[in-house]
Design a protein around this nucleic acid. Structure first.
Lengths: 265, 265
DNA sequence: CGTATATTTGATATACATCAAAACGCGTGG
DNA sequence: CCACGCGTTTTGATGTATATCAAATATACG
């Protein structure tokens, strides 16, 4: 499982596509000032809270927002902090399938069958806004703008999930960890927060579980990234990561999937 | 990358969940008669076409429904046949991230940014229904039932994508291929079609790309499944697979992730 | 402070990728 | 109808990335 898949992909249908996918956003893009960066999400949240009064709730690391199997009733929007979405199977497998930051929504998975399908767990002190789904739908009929917001969020989630799948399937471990950090930075950027220093608040085991590798591999990958000066750790505690240049992470990912210095041309 | 992740998962938060996830559906469930199986989707499609006149279109293998980068305008519902969704990255990686069967929708990814983010390509002669997104929204305000249908479809897609991610991250290659076949059978079942014989119409390379492994590994996995009598090939052509018992595939997956015969209690 | 939990790092094992070659199937054109 | 060529599939031999096992720090927590 590695970049070579891209190479092996020859037998796939030919593509004539030119434009980049969502993964592309911010590959080497000049970064906006922080206020602007978070504007879109801030606007969305103020619009939202202006139209339908949310049930605001402050939660702490470990708090469970909803659990798989529980009756579906609410959707939630993240106002601050972050959450993990954990999928479970009957055969006992457990995986973190998604991380949710400011502006993301939780609970869409519950709509289809009337039951949540995952667990949603706070990873830090966070503020979450709850909305009764029925109420939200009713409000949408009045204010079509709300519907747009909702659909955009679902659409974005679908696109993001596909990008995750793609990372897992086409990137070697080191690149996957680099990409993971880059995505984290992007999420912070969109939230209008500092992006040069991130507190992971996840164990290596959790990160590994999310990325489809073991905790040891995560640890080694991080050590390697640090050795290459792409990241550095806070003096105390290896869970704070300083990222001087997020673009350098992108470049690293590129290098991983194009091992040959490419003398073709 | 394998089942061991479940084992390594100890440091994750403890769960008290009882109910199965969406992956669970039909693990050893008694199968419904075929007419009933496809009822839900059939109902959805008739409801849909009753409320808003779709632009019906018959397409053939290889036909492109939309391409990444193209301006978003329509959503599509699959009435028959099937499609692949292909994700592309700026760095040239290409991956089949999803397969769409009868009752599934195409194009949700385009809502968020006004551009499709993937390619959608027919894999067989198929009938697809196009709906102008604007028109669909307008109709939704009149007929809330439509909104429900739409949201259910998106919700289901989100849940399904997460299950895919989980397969890739937690199952060894053989189990992943078995699970892939099982999912295919499920999709056919939901469409109300025969499930004991499936025409893949995908090359091993495409399957491998979708599952995050090489074509050789797919081939070996299939050979192994055939050797264990879980599947068999049509006398002519290795792309038709007979699946006498889909539950046996589930059992095989279980065995793969629980290599130790479990002498514990 | 001392104990439990995380993290790092090394040594080794293994599942899967890679490379290679043969067999098969499929369409085309003689 | 058969011969040819090309793409697909299978299968084997070998290499390698990552898992597994293990032990030594480091860090958090009571």
């Amino acid at each position: 499982m590695l970049g070579s898949n891209a190479g092996t992909a020859a037998p796939l249908q030919p593509f004539t596509v030119a434009l980049p996918t969502s993964t592309a956003s911010a590959y080497g893009m000049p970064s906006m000032p922080r206020q602007q960066a978070g504007r879109k999400i801030a606007d969305m949240l103020t619009l939202l809270s202006g139209q339908v009064a949310p049930q605001r709730r402050v939660v702490h690391a470990g708090d469970v927002i909803y659990q798989a199997g529980e009756r579906f009733s609410h959707l939630y929007a993240v106002n601050s902090g972050f959450f993990k979405i954990v999928n479970l199977t009957v055969d006992g497998r457990v995986q973190v399938v998604s991380l949710k930051f400011r502006g993301d929504w939780l609970g869409f998975d519950g709509i289809a069958d009337g039951c949540y399908v995952c667990d949603a767990v706070a990873m830090d002190t966070s503020e979450i806004w709850g909305f009764r789904y029925e109420g939200l739908l009713a409000a949408c009929v009045e204010k079509p703008m709300l519907l747009t917001v909702l659909h955009e969020a679902m659409s974005r989630e679908i696109a993001h999930d596909r990008d995750s799948l793609m990372s897992v399937c086409t990137l070697p471990a080191d690149a996957r960890v680099a990409e993971f950090l880059r995505q984290w930075v992007l999420s912070l950027e969109n939230s209008g927060m500092r992006t040069d220093e991130i507190k992971l608040r996840m164990t290596r085991a959790e990160i590994g579980n999310y990325l489809g590798m073991t905790l040891e591999t995560v640890s080694r990958a991080l050590s390697r990234l640090a050795r290459e000066k792409l990241i550095s750790f806070a003096q105390k505690g290896r869970r704070e990561v300083r990222i001087p240049d997020a673009n350098a992470l992108s470049a690293f990912v590129q290098r991983c999937i194009a091992p040959a210095p490419s003398l073709m041309q």
